[in-house]
Computed example of a mutant assay.
Amino acid sequence: MKLMADFDENDAPRTVLRGEGSRRGILDAAEDLFTERGFARTSLRDVAERARTGRGAILLHFKDKDGLAMAVAERAAGRLRAADHQPAASPLAGRISALLEHGDSALVLEVLVHVLSARSEVRRHHRDFLARRREGVEALLVRRRPAHVDPVAAAGRERAAAVALNGVLLGIHLQVLLDPESVDLEAALTSAVTMFDRNLDDVWR
């Protein structure tokens, strides 16, 4: 039995670090497999083997495959938000295209398409993800808003524009996932955001 005199005060921090390292390794493995094989063709056993851990460790950290998938999606979405380093004055089309062509954007949508169901927890995560995307577009619009425009009057129109653009861009990605041979992702994204950028002033009229 370990006596108090023998207690190493660094034991707990090392345990926490090991736990975080295990969680990160599982996420890395799941992300690689979801990208290589797709969500539906990846099992928890596959993830455990790639991460060199046991299936029980995955269940301990994430509860089930849906929980693991949402953690992968949330981490990728966080990288997407961090990737937007362009100045606020940059053309809206270029900023949004750059983010949506980022590999993490396709990964997030791949996961969400497969795990979305009637289960309330997954629906909540999907709803929150879409809300963050809308808020990101709204923030871009606020920074581009002309100085003479009344912010109270503009807020509703900016929200509507963000919902519309978010829906178009996610719809393009969904088509790519379902029928990749028939959709030119880069051309479709460029077309959508260019049309939006050219008509941006209409949001504030």
Rank of each mutant, 00 (worst) to 15 (best):
L68P: 04
V203H: 06
D104G: 08
F62R: 04
R159V: 08
E20C: 12
K65E: 00
V115Y: 04
Q86V: 04
R198W: 04
R133E: 09
E110A: 06
M1T: 09
R50F: 03
F129I: 10
A131C: 12
V142G: 07
V115L: 05
R134C: 10
T42R: 01
F34Y: 08
L80W: 02
E31F: 01
S105G: 11
R14G: 02
A131D: 13
R50H: 00
E135C: 13
F129Y: 15
A83Y: 11
D8V: 03
L174C: 01
L92R: 03
R124M: 15
A57P: 11
S182L: 13
E158I: 05
A48F: 03
H61C: 10
A161F: 02
E138G: 06
G38C: 01
N10M: 11
A76E: 03
V168F: 12
E181L: 12
G156Y: 08
R52L: 11
L107V: 00
A98L: 14
T42C: 01
I58W: 01
L140Y: 10
L3E: 05
R79V: 05
P146H: 08
L99V: 09
M1G: 11
E9R: 14
N10Y: 13
P13Y: 02
E31I: 05
A153K: 14
R198F: 11
A12L: 14
L33F: 03
F34D: 02
V122P: 07
A29P: 05
F196L: 07
A154S: 09
A51I: 01
I58A: 04
R79G: 10
P87V: 06
R95D: 00
A153C: 02
F39N: 00
A51Q: 05
D32M: 07
L17D: 07
V122C: 09
E186F: 09
S105Q: 08
G67D: 03
R159A: 09
S43H: 07
Q86A: 11
R205N: 10
D128A: 13
L185E: 14
S120G: 13
G136M: 15
R133P: 09
E181T: 08
F34P: 02
R205P: 14
D6W: 02
V176T: 10
D8R: 06
L92Y: 03
A161V: 07
R55M: 14
G21C: 12
R81C: 12
A93W: 09
H125E: 12
R127I: 08
R23P: 05
E110M: 02
D201I: 14
L100K: 09
P87S: 02
M1E: 13
S97C: 14
V137W: 01
D8I: 06
L177H: 11
R81K: 14
